[in-house]
């Protein structure tokens, strides 16, 4: 395939899949600014390497994996930066999500997780990947995934309400 065709192919892919890729970046980062940066960097790398990408049948998976790896390996938020997470308006009319939002501290705790831990959580619980698949996606060992997920959940427990049991109770009530 010639260069011009490849460029058009990449442009079409980006034009069609940008919203989904941006949403995934948002899940990974939890805020708009970092999501923009993340999807930009991942698409740039993909665009540069487009001619050599083997997984042409699944370029979106390729970009998503790239984002997860960038997030897990490189993405470090300055400690003093305090970005305020917010439930997107589009989800606000979902009663179940309202309940999630009501659980004080979970958003903040998620937002304060180190990027690698957050990436592991996204792959495990959002993507529903197994530990083995998560390890393969992030290029690390299964043990690392296991320990990162465990530590992340421990941090979330500690970072939620003063009384995390109350949050869990609320959630149980919401689902019953």
């Amino acid at each position: 395939m010639r260069g011009g065709d490849l460029d058009r192919q990449f442009d079409d892919f980006v034009a069609n899949r940008f919203p989904a890729l941006y949403r995934y970046a948002y899940v990974l980062t939890g805020n708009q600014h970092d999501a923009e940066d993340l999807v930009q960097e991942a698409l740039t790398r993909t665009g540069v390497a487009w001619g050599r990408i083997r997984r042409k049948d699944d370029p979106e998976g390729y970009v998503r994996t790239t984002m997860a790896r960038i997030m897990a390996n490189r993405w470090r938020r300055p400690k003093l930066e305090h970005l305020v997470p917010g439930v997107p308006e589009t989800a606000a009319d979902d009663p179940g999500l309202d309940r999630v939002h009501e659980i004080d501290g979970l958003d903040a705790a998620l937002g304060s997780l180190p990027p690698r831990m957050r990436a592991v959580l996204v792959l495990r619980y959002f993507e529903q990947l197994s530990e083995e698949e998560t390890a393969r996606a992030l290029g690390c060992s299964r043990g690392t995934v296991k320990s990162q997920a465990s530590r992340a959940l421990a941090k979330l427990r500690a970072g939620m309400l003063d009384d995390p049991e109350r949050a869990l109770m609320e959630d149980r009530r919401g689902r019953s």
Binding site: P19, Y22, A35, V87, P88, G96, L97, L106, L110, Y125
Partner: peptide, 21 residues
């Protein structure tokens, strides 16, 4: 799956609704 894991899943899915302007 633990309750907390379900909460995390739900929270992350909530973020998935943010389309770019």
């Amino acid at each position: 799956m633990e309750d907390l894991e379900r909460l995390v899943e739900g929270r992350l899915r909530a973020l998935d609704g943010t389309d770019p302007s």
